[in-house]
C-alpha cells in the first residue's frame, strides 16, 4: 500500500467516505470480507434492493454549464437493525446482494461494531481501491513520452 493510501485510511472517516468505499468495492471482495467478518445482525427492510438509474452529468468545456451525459445503473436499499440503527446503500450496477451488505456495514459502522467493520471490511477495500489506482497510474506513467531533441545542421 502506498503512503498516501495509508494516510487516507488513517484519517478520521466520515459516513460519506465509508459509504463510498463500500459502493465502489468489487462485489466479490465485499462479499468475501463480509463473510470473514462473521456478523449476522437481524434487520428489517426499509426499502428492499431496487434497480434504477441516475443521470450522469458533465459540464460543457469541462467547466461550464451542466449537461446530461447519459445514465448509469444503480441499486439502492435501506434497512434497520434490531437496535434501531439505519443503513443505506447506493451502489453502481445491478447488485442486490452487494447493496444489502453495503447497507448492513453502513448501519454497523454507526455503533459498537465500527472498529471491527472498519478493520476487516472498509480498510481492506479502501486499500484495494488505492492499489488499483496506483496500478493504473503506474501503467500510464510507463507510456509517458520523453522528448529528446536531435541536434541538426551546422554549428
Amino acid at each position: 500500500m502506498t503512503e498516501s493510501a495509508e494516510r487516507r485510511i488513517e484519517c478520521r472517516m466520515e459516513r460519506r467516505d465509508w459509504m463510498g468505499v463500500l459502493a465502489r468495492a468489487d462485489p466479490e471482495r465485499l462479499a468475501g470480507a463480509w463473510d470473514a467478518l462473521g456478523l449476522a445482525p437481524g434487520f428489517e427492510w426499509l426499502r428492499k434492493p431496487e434497480f434504477g438509474a441516475v443521470m450522469v452529468r458533465g459540464r460543457a468545456g469541462a467547466t461550464g454549464a451542466p449537461f446530461n451525459l447519459g445514465e448509469m445503473t444503480v441499486t439502492r436499499c435501506a434497512l434497520r437493525l434490531e437496535d434501531g440503527r439505519d443503513g443505506h446503500a447506493y451502489v453502481p450496477g445491478r447488485e442486490a446482494a452487494k447493496a444489502e451488505i453495503a447497507a448492513l456495514c453502513d448501519a454497523l459502522m454507526q455503533g459498537p461494531e465500527a472498529d471491527e467493520v472498519r478493520e476487516k471490511v472498509i480498510d481492506p477495500l479502501a486499500g484495494d481501491a488505492e492499489a488499483e489506482r496506483a496500478h493504473i497510474a503506474a501503467k500510464a506513467a510507463a507510456t509517458k513520452v520523453d522528448f529528446f531533441t536531435m541536434v541538426r545542421g551546422e554549428d
Binding site: 434504477g52 445503473t73 444503480v74 497510474a137
Partner: peptide, 30 residues
C-alpha cells in the same frame, strides 16, 4: 433503460480530477 426508475442526477463530473490512462495534446509538446 426505459424500465428503470430514475433515482436522480449526479453532480457534474470533475474531469480535471480524472485518473488519466491517456492524455495527449496536439497543441503543446511540454
Amino acid at each position: 433503460r426505459t424500465t428503470l426508475p430514475r433515482f436522480g442526477a449526479t453532480e457534474p463530473v470533475d474531469t480535471g480530477a480524472m485518473l488519466c490512462e491517456r492524455r495527449i495534446s496536439a497543441t503543446f509538446k511540454d
